[in-house]
Design a protein around this nucleic acid. Structure first.
Length: 169
DNA sequence: AGACTAACGTAATCAATGT
DNA sequence: ACATTGATTACGTTAGTCT
């Protein structure tokens, strides 16, 4: 049945993942001045928006929500904000907005572990392919690989050497 | 060519789930 | 109760965009 099918196709998927791993990162998003305005306004109100606010901002800006979390250079803006807004940030009394609800990965863990054995740094194409195969959203997959690399560094990639370049932090 | 900054990385930590 | 693991924060590096 469906489980067996997944196992059968997983080998094909894994070689595809391996091929895609060397490819480019996600295409760079260009954030327009009006979109920047929206972000800056939100930043004034709250430096640590929860999942709901981030989704709302993404909708207003017309870009995928995950980019907001990544693309906000708080340190860069901190200077501007310090000049523009005389007031220090909101008091610590303000309740923290809820974070993203934990995604249940368990049913798909095997597939990710097998992919991890091939490549530790899947590029965007490989992540999208895994997302398509598993139904787990790509941004969650990126986080999964980050956590996996941090917590299971001993599991080195297997298989023939390929051109994947170890990034230096 | 240099400034700016999105994409992506690690490290530490918070917090929900699994045992 | 504790271990595991997804999500968040802070900051550093790489590389695309723009003047």
């Amino acid at each position: 049945h469906s489980m067996g099918l997944n196992v059968l196709s997983s080998q094909c998927v894994l070689s595809l993942i391996e091929d895609l791993a060397r490819e480019a990162q996600r295409k760079r998003t260009v954030i327009s001045p009006s979109q920047t305005r929206i972000l800056v306004q939100a930043f004034k109100r709250d430096h640590f928006p929860g999942i709901a606010t981030r989704a709302e901002l993404a909708h207003q800006m017309g870009i995928p929500a995950p980019q907001i979390q990544v693309s906000s250079p708080a340190s860069t803006w901190a200077q501007d904000m310090a000049q523009e807004a005389q007031h220090p940030q909101q008091s610590p009394i303000l309740a923290q907005e809820a974070r993203r609800k934990r995604t249940i990965i368990s049913p798909r863990t095997k597939i990710f572990v097998q992919a991890f054995m091939r490549v530790h740094f899947p590029a965007i194409a490989a992540r999208e392919e895994l997302a398509h195969q598993t139904g787990i959203p790509e941004p969650r997959i990126q986080i999964w690989f980050q956590n996996r690399r941090a917590r299971h560094p001993q599991q080195s990639p297997s298989g023939p050497r390929n051109g994947w370049v170890q990034r230096l932090g």
